[in-house]
Design a protein around this nucleic acid. Sequence first.
DNA 1: ATCTATGGCAAGCCGA
DNA 2: TCGGCTTGCCAT
Length: 860
Amino acid sequence: MLMASITRNELHPTHVSSIQNNSTSSEIPYGSYVLSVTYDGSKRTACLKMYYPKTRKIFLSHDNTGHLPYCFSNLSKEELEKINKLRNHPGFDHMELSKKYDPLMDKEVVMTKIVAKDPLAIGGRYSNHIRDIIPKAWEANIRYYNCYTYDQQLFLGMPYRVENGNLLLAEYHLPQDINSDMKKLFEAEDETFRNYIDSWMKLFQYPIPSIYRVALDIEVAQPVENRIPDSREAKEKIIAVSLVDSDKKKRVLLLKRPSVKMGKGDLSQVDVEFYDNEKELILEIFKILNQYPVVLTFNGDDFDLRYIYNRALNLGFQRHMIPIELQLRSTSLKYGIHIDLYKFFFNKAIQIYAFRKKYSRLTLNSVAKSILGIGKIEIETSPSRLTYVELVNYCLMDSELTFQLTTFDDELVMKLIIVLMRISKMPIDDLIRQGVSSWIRNLMYFEHRRLNILIPRSEDILHLKGQTTTKSIIKGKKFKGAIVVNPKPGVHFNIAVLDFASLYPSIIKIYNLSYETILCSHSECKLNMIPDLPYWVCNKRKGLFSTIIGSLRDIRVKWYKKKVKDYSLTRSLRNLYNVVQLTLKVLLNASYGVMGAENFTLYCPPLAEAVTGIGRYSITKTIEKANSLGIEVVYGDTDSIFLKSPTQHQIDELLSWSEKELGMELEIDKHYRYSVFSTLKKNYLGVYDNGDVDIKGLTGKKRHIPDFLKTAFMEMISILGEVKSPSDFERAKIKIKKIIRTCNDKLKKKQYNLSELALNIMISKTPDKYVKTTPQHVKAALLLVNAGYEIRPGDIISFIKTTNDLGVKPIQLATIREVDTNKYRNYLESTFEQVLDALSMDFNEIMGIQKLESFFSNAS
DNA sequence: ATCTATGGCAAGCCGA
DNA sequence: TCGGCTTGCCAT
């Protein structure tokens, strides 16, 4: 409905036509990429933002979404009667009957569509009327309309062209070699599956445009230090704005202030502009915001753009003059698109799967440092006290880093965003601000609509499929998860680690798992049981979820992952393939999780349970098989097993057994020269053949422990990396002893400074919200609050263990004299013991010998 | 108008 | 003093 109603004449850029000076045509040109669709619910209009790479402009189309209907499934005769009487209602236009497939019942249902004359009638008195006469049906489908691809199947992030006033997806054919690859790889699959493969490939292989964009950062006068300016009040002046764009143009706009000195330094790389008053400065910002299709910020939703908006209001601007729109939690632009990179990098799935947890703190500085390797300039005072030159450099650094976050690795982040748009069918604005569950929900809804399948309500799924039957090991969880094998403590040489290539998605594919196929309504299927669980799976119909996740998995594992390693391809092509591979990884890893999340609209507990259940079954069987082949399994977790000195033949046997018996691809993931296990699960260390060391779960690596411990621990690690054979251990052990001793010595002599001693723990709520207990970092945070600091959720509290009665003090308030050396010695002990144990070394013994030695050295 | 899941460890809090 | 519970961080 949305797209069909767009005609040539309606495609006019509205209030921004003046700034599109080089485009006289009002139609959307061939190859314009759809970046965003937003709906204004109250006005029943949609705003389409399309980007045309050639002119680097955005085209806006404000489109009437027309007569939004209500759809109800399976109304009774009486209800239909009542609706017929509605025909006299002034809001009523017409009624249509159509058919949809109900996946839960596996049958066709009749849909009743009621269309209102006046779109505004919906949500008003007319809708109340409908609710009154068909209360049951009212619940049916309202959620149906909240999706961005209503009715028309619009591909976000894809190029369109205009033909006869309609938007059409630009044609694109897969290259012949890819086509034949696909044919070869998937010839065993059925037609539906192959069709999915084909359409995914098209989505991923379409060209990805480079988007013209600017990064923006503002500085605000700061009368009180340690106090973050409030973007809601916007009381202080905006003193500087920095901009970095795709043309590498750097600009800094400065507010003239009488007391500020110019200062010294080189500014030849920057265009610096002075403004006599703030209003002019803000006008210039507005001009810029209307000039770029994409504006990047780091935390602009909450700060920069919000501040500019409110500041503008304070200075007497009218709302319609401001090219910014405030939402509750986000800030958008009237012309272009605002990407708040903070929100994107905040996304857990992105952090873990796309960036392998490279950054541990969510500040521009930390993210930039760990991803780009560049840090920010630290300033001692508030920006207000800087000279102009200092201010320019300081402010510019922020937007430069922000910009670079989207350019490193051949524009990895921008490409990631576009590929995600294409899979999830979501506009940028929402995509970067919402979590992975929304992405998957949207993707699933899109497929339902495309195939004319009724989107079920959560209540219906829950009612039909029921709750879980297994008990979790951890208290308070909903169902049983994965198996972790008890490790065999000690040092093991020659370890091969095998794992299943994306275990859970494989299970979803192979066992045909989907909310509609598990516990399906056919009695014949009840024999098709899932191992060790009281659930059966349909063998009459292919599950939608299963096909979608399965095809995505196969594409990633069988094609993209392989192509990334194909060095005959160009670097940029491999890079592109890597982007797709990463994107799929993010989605696939979340695919099982969402099914077990209450908030997910297709929440289906037995499904999630079946996935982990089959997972447990698979790894258990594999371990049994390994043992029967005479291989010793030293450890295993969820989808991996660690084998001690297996022969190539044994491995081959195991791999082919898995392929044949389980239908799953078991692979060699990595090989350790040796590994060190303690008695603890999820705690080990593995040394690769090249000497690199994998550290898993050990305390010495965790984010919150003091730096002095981390450094000492890493010293030990590098020594372990040098060990090549059992005989090397003796020398290594001596070196390790030395490390621990010197560390202890330095502790005693108080040679570490406060920042090396500080524990760094994130506070996840505001301090007053901790009611059940008051952990130490919260105690420290409260001291900070008393001292006038502002503490927000997500802040990292750095504190020292001290001898005062609280036991802690924040680093800002502590002195070296108060340090509780005993406590730190205990940390030293527990951190190292995890490894020492396995090396059959003893911490106290090391310390004991130390006493003797120092006795001798003192005596001599 | 949102926030994938469970398993496991260390440390500390706090009531019994 | 003990043990259950809370918190944060990590593995998969």
